[in-house]
Simulated assay, not measured.
Amino acid sequence: MHSYAAFLRGIMPSNPNMRNEKLRGVFEGLGFDNVSTLLSSGNVVFQAKDSKVPALESRIQQALNAELGIPGGTLIRTRDQLQALVDSDPFAGLTHCRETYLTVTFVREAPKQLPEFPADDTGTVRVLRFDPDAVAILSVIDNTDPSTTNFMQIVEKTIGKDITTRTFLTVQKALKKLNS
């Protein structure tokens, strides 16, 4: 059995079809084991015999769309990928808090090199690096500025919409669930 975390794009907890129990039901209906959800923002940990991540992502997304009408994307990372990311201490010396968000933006495919992102017009985002093993952009968002950052739109325009962002705390919680 292989352990995975699925990070679903476009989940709105206020939508009854996107609630955790329905998400778990889709994953269990696909025959996955030890299915568990985390928070209410589209984070599902599970075990599967299949080790082909792209096939799993496609199968899950098709089922979510067919059964619940969820059109977003499904990005999967293995327990080992998340463990390596957490072990690398990518945000050393920084603390996630109301003023500073430590974020992980998972992308479908690794770019050959991290593109130059256009300047964030609010000056509130600092891209630290691209993690090739987790296939993720690691960034710090300064929330002390009342302006709303448009960084996610910048990432989408630069890399494409096949991305999803989580806080580093959420990634750590997903790993903890995978390890329990």
Rank of each mutant, 00 (worst) to 15 (best):
G69S: 13
L64V: 00
V107L: 13
Q61T: 05
A66P: 04
T37Y: 05
T74K: 04
Q61Y: 02
L82F: 03
L94E: 09
V45L: 03
G93Y: 03
D80S: 13
I60R: 03
L68K: 11
I60P: 02
T100D: 12
F46M: 05
L85W: 08
E99P: 11
T95W: 04
L68Q: 14
Q83H: 15
R59F: 00
T103V: 13
K52M: 14
S41V: 06
L75V: 12
L75G: 08
C97A: 14
G73M: 12
D50T: 12
Q61M: 06
D87G: 09
L102T: 12
E67P: 06
V104L: 08
L82H: 07
D87C: 10
G72P: 05
I76V: 10
V86Q: 14
I60D: 01
L38F: 03
R59C: 06
L38N: 02
L39N: 03
L75E: 10
D89A: 10
D50M: 09
L85C: 10
S36V: 01
I70H: 15
T103A: 08
L64E: 00
L85G: 08
D87Q: 15
L68A: 11
S40G: 14
S36D: 04
T78F: 04
Q61L: 01
A92H: 06
D87R: 10
S58P: 03
L38S: 04
Q61K: 09
L39G: 00
N65P: 03
P54F: 03
R98C: 10
T37R: 05
V107G: 09
R77K: 15
L82E: 11
Q47A: 08
